[in-house]
């Protein structure tokens, strides 16, 4: 199964990646080649096989409900591209 330019635009939008229209065709081609490689998986019948999400079937460890983190706002906000009044600033969010 190969993908077309529309698919690539849709994926790029989902992934929030701007795509240069001049490069669209190249993306489509490379991604299709990768998908061809990936589709070798179809050689094997996997009916009845349990999906494996983790390399080991371990159990989640639960931690005690305790406040262990201190306020480090100033340290963290310094990393932000834009901040004011203790807030991270982003272009206007419209509901």
């Amino acid at each position: 199964m190969s993908i077309n330019n529309d698919d690539v635009e849709k994926i790029a939008h989902l992934a929030r990646l701007a795509i240069d229209p001049a490069q669209l065709e190249t993306y489509t081609q490379t991604l299709s080649e990768i998908l061809d490689l990936v589709e070798q998986m179809n050689e094997v019948d996997t009916d009845g096989i349990d999906a494996m999400a983790h390399p080991r079937d371990t159990e989640l460890r639960l931690r005690a409900d305790a406040v262990t983190e201190e306020n480090q706002r100033d340290k963290y906000l310094k990393l932000a591209p834009a901040s004011e009044n203790g807030l991270f600033l982003v272009p206007k969010v419209l509901d």
């Binding site: 931690r63 409900d65 305790a66 406040v67 983190e69 963290y76 009044n85 807030l87």
Partner: peptide
Amino acid sequence: KTRSKIFSGAATAYGAEANTQACAVDL
């Protein structure tokens, strides 16, 4: 009504000054 967040040790108390209860994991 937990004291700390679901996946981090930051406090959940309501009404704190902005971003003072957002730890590395929350950010």
